[in-house]
């Protein structure tokens, strides 16, 4: 193990990295979507059109920062901040490389669950404060969806926790030296991924937004940088879910030594980010009731069964010499 890096540097690194990558994802997503839709996507501003991110940001900054007169002003302003802050907090427990972690909490996974459930607040508050029917509808849907999927999100992770006996992500990654947990916990991985998509309300689970039904759902009334924060928050969420998935099931930074651990971690994470975008490019949005049915009637039982089987195996292994 190398000398520990100063924690503030780690914080700055993580924060800087995430905040740089999140807007970059805007470009990446557009390019990839275009790629899968036989188009070019943004290709004019800068090399490969990367400066579109800058253009977008500038545009958002210069848009009129409009608060509807009928909105609950304070809450309306606070809501978009919550989404970014809670999403960023989740990165506290992510081990990017051995020792490269903001805080190796021994309850890392619980912390992650706690912060991600806080995200629901931003949606509810944003939609509610907008004082707009569509926004409220979006917020209601968002709340229901996030709460429902959180239940088995947590349960699906418990398989991994059972196998390692720790909530610390660093411990979990280290436990995968021989075998990535995706193999023993395949069912857990699948359910976790689905729950993760729902948690970030990305397509096909973008039901709180559903621009084709309820305009833009909870952020209908938002414009300018306040909208921009919801937008960025969503991308930070994608990165977070991808990183967690990598940590839990794909061995985190582990990989052949020809590349440094951080690069392995980043590569794996990007695979999942790209998967997220591919999902958006190919799948239609289910109906709201279908989403709830799917969550409560299929995924929840599956995770519970998975958990019980895992627990049984762990018990069996512990008891047999």
């Amino acid at each position: 193990m190398e000398a520990p890096i100063h924690p503030m540097l780690i914080v700055a690194g993580v924060l800087g990295g995430v905040m740089l990558v999140a807007p970059g994802l805007i470009w990446l997503e557009r390019r990839l979507l275009a790629l899968w839709q036989d188009r070019y996507g943004p290709n004019r501003a800068g090399p490969f059109g990367v400066l579109v991110v800058l253009a977008d940001t500038l545009k958002l900054f210069f848009k009129e920062d409009w608060t509807p007169p009928f909105a609950d002003k304070k809450v309306f302003i606070v809501a978009p901040a919550i989404v970014v802050i809670t999403a960023l907090l989740g990165f506290v427990v992510i081990p990017f490389a051995p020792g490269f972690i903001v805080s190796d909490l021994n309850i890392g996974i619980l912390f992650f669950l706690a912060t991600s459930s806080m995200g629901a607040y931003s949606i509810i508050l944003g939609g509610w404060a907008s004082n707009n029917k569509y926004a409220l509808l979006g917020a209601m849907r968002g709340a229901a969806q996030m709460i429902s999927y959180e239940v088995f999100m947590g349960l699906s992770m418990m398989g991994v926790v059972l196998l390692t006996g720790s909530f610390s992500l660093q411990t979990i990654v280290n436990a995968q030296q021989d075998l990535w947990f995706v193999v023993p916990q395949f069912v857990g991985f699948v359910t976790f991924l689905i729950a993760g998509i729902a948690e970030t309300h990305r397509l096909p689970f973008d039901i709180p937004e559903s621009e084709s039904e309820i305009i833009a759902g909870f952020h209908s009334e938002y414009s300018g940088m306040k909208f921009g924060m919801f937008f960025v928050g969503e991308y930070i969420g994608i990165i977070l879910i991808s990183s967690i998935t990598v940590c839990l099931y794909f061995g985190g930074w582990l990989g052949p030594a020809f590349l440094p651990p951080v690069v392995w971690f980043i590569l794996k994470t990007f695979v999942f980010i790209i998967l997220f975008i591919l999902l958006r490019a190919s799948l239609p949005r289910p109906r709201y009731d279908q989403l709830m049915d799917f969550g409560w009637k299929i995924l929840l039982p599956v995770t519970i069964i998975n958990l019980m089987i895992t627990a049984a195996i762990v018990l069996f292994n512990e008891n047999s010499p």
Partner: peptide
């Protein structure tokens, strides 16, 4: 969808 990467661009 993934395979569309290798199609001709319409733009």
């Amino acid at each position: 969808t993934f395979l569309h990467m290798f199609h001709k661009r319409e733009t």
